[in-house]
Amino acid sequence: MQIFVKTLTGKTITLEVEPSDTIENVKAKIQDKEGIPPDQQRLIFNGKQLEDGRTLSDYNIQKDSTLHLVLR
């Protein structure tokens, strides 16, 4: 499925993911596309910070959902 990740600069990254993917996996995909190390990434969905060990389906993230990427 496709999800979107919006950065603070207003750029939107499109990712191909599975609901069973962990947040860690998603961060690795963002690193592949953008070169941002996962330990600098914080992903936010519906105002909640997403934890590495959880999956997209844990957070009820579905296709065409938009996550927000904050760098630390």
Rank of each mutant, 00 (worst) to 15 (best):
A28L: 09
R54A: 05
N46S: 11
T14L: 12
K6H: 10
L50K: 00
Q49D: 08
L56F: 05
I44D: 12
R42M: 10
Q2L: 11
E51F: 03
K27Y: 09
L8Y: 05
P37Y: 13
K11Y: 09
D39G: 04
L8T: 11
K27N: 02
L43Q: 00
T55L: 10
S20D: 12
L69T: 01
E34K: 02
L67D: 01
D52G: 13
L67Q: 01
E18N: 09
K48T: 15
N25H: 02
L8D: 10
I13K: 02
K11G: 07
T66P: 02
P37M: 13
P19H: 13
R72Y: 08
P37D: 13
L71T: 13
K27R: 07
D58T: 09
Q40Y: 09
Q41V: 04
I3E: 00
T14H: 06
L67G: 01
L50D: 00
L71H: 12
S57Y: 12
T22W: 11
D64N: 11
T7S: 06
I44K: 06
I61K: 00
T22I: 07
Q40V: 06
T66S: 05
D32N: 09
R72S: 14
G35K: 09
I23Q: 12
L15V: 15
Q41Y: 02
K63Y: 04
T7H: 06
D58K: 07
Q41W: 05
R54P: 02
K29W: 06
G10F: 02
A28G: 07
I13Y: 08
I61M: 10
Y59A: 06
R42N: 06
P37L: 15
L50R: 00
T22K: 12
T7Y: 06
L56G: 01
V26Y: 00
L67I: 03
D52F: 05
I13S: 06
T12M: 15
K63H: 09
L43M: 06
K48A: 15
L50I: 05
I44P: 00
T55Y: 13
T7W: 04
S65I: 06
V17P: 03
K29H: 11
P38Q: 10
Q2Y: 06
V5N: 00
G47Y: 04
D21M: 08
T66D: 04
G47T: 13
R72G: 09
T22F: 04
H68I: 03
I36W: 04
R54N: 11
Q2W: 14
R54D: 15
L71E: 08
L8K: 10
V26P: 00
D64H: 10
E16N: 13
E16Y: 09
E34P: 02
R54I: 12
T14S: 09
P37K: 15
T14I: 13
V17R: 01
R42P: 01
V5T: 02
G35E: 03
G10R: 07
N60V: 05
D21H: 05
I23F: 10
I30K: 00
V70Y: 09
V26N: 00
I30G: 01
K6A: 08
T66V: 04
S20V: 15
P37W: 06
P37E: 15
K63F: 14
S20P: 04
Y59L: 05
L67R: 01
G53W: 14
R72E: 08
R54F: 14
I36R: 03
V26E: 00
D58G: 07
A28K: 10
R42S: 14
T7G: 14
Q2S: 05
L56W: 01
D39I: 15
K48R: 09
T66Q: 05
K29Q: 03
Y59K: 01
L43I: 13
S57L: 08
I3M: 11
T7N: 09
